[in-house]
């Protein structure tokens, strides 16, 4: 069986990075994994996406018609990919930038202020890491420790000085994702609680 996740947003929001972290975590758990970026003529400020497919056998189609989850970090991605989530699937939405609700009742929509939580964690650009934390917290595609290790392995190698912020961003997303159930009636409360707990690790 395979499960698939689409990450989409502006170039610079860490779309490819979040997918790579998830892929690496799955690989380190002994699973099969396939990561594919959009590689069209994208430009700065345009949309980017990456798809991760995780399975326990050889991965089949790299093209996902119905994803188990999608992470959309900006309005154009929301418009394009909200419909790609399979019924019963999960949509993680960056509500700092995406103001419109999706309007689908057959999926779970997790609206999280990713940009603001990333800023709280110490770096605006970690928006996708916040979303990844929420995704892992909610769907348990990989174990939380595998994801944290994958962040250490991926970030620590190149930019050890920002590793703490990455882990804090992941933790803040993870708290929201693992505590929110269903379409989040008490989101304000959750958000406030997270905001107080995260702090800014500078």
């Amino acid at each position: 069986m395979e499960r698939s996740v689409i990450f989409a947003g502006f170039g610079g929001q860490g779309i490819l990075f979040a997918g790579k972290v998830l892929a690496r975590a799955a690989m380190d758990e002994g699973l099969e994994v396939f990561w594919i970026p959009s590689y069209g003529p994208e430009m700065r400020g345009g949309t980017a996406s990456s798809t991760v497919i995780i399975g326990d056998g050889p991965i089949g189609s790299p093209i996902v018609d119905q994803a188990d989850a999608a992470v959309v970090l900006n309005p154009p991605s929301h418009a394009k990919y909200a419909s790609h989530v399979a019924p019963g699937g999960l949509l993680v939405v960056n509500e700092t930038l995406v103001l419109e609700p999706t309007g689908r009742t057959d999926i779970t929509e997790l609206r999280i202020p990713c940009t603001r939580l990333a800023r709280d964690a110490g770096d605006d650009s970690l928006v996708s890491v916040v979303a990844l934390g929420a995704l892992v917290g909610r769907l348990r595609l990989v174990r939380v420790e595998s994801a944290r290790q994958a962040i250490r392995d991926t970030v620590g190698m190149k930019r050890p000085q920002v590793l703490a912020a990455d882990l804090a961003a992941f933790a803040s997303g993870y708290r929201v994702g693992s505590r929110t159930h269903g379409p989040s009636p008490d989101q304000e409360i959750v958000r406030t609680r997270v905001h107080h707990r995260v702090g800014v690790p500078r």
Binding site: E29, L31, D56, G57, R143
Partner: peptide, 13 residues
């Protein structure tokens, strides 16, 4: 034949 069981994170390799 590809395996047909559910995806389950395994223990450490």
């Amino acid at each position: 034949p590809p395996a047909a069981t559910a995806v389950r994170p395994r223990a450490r390799p």
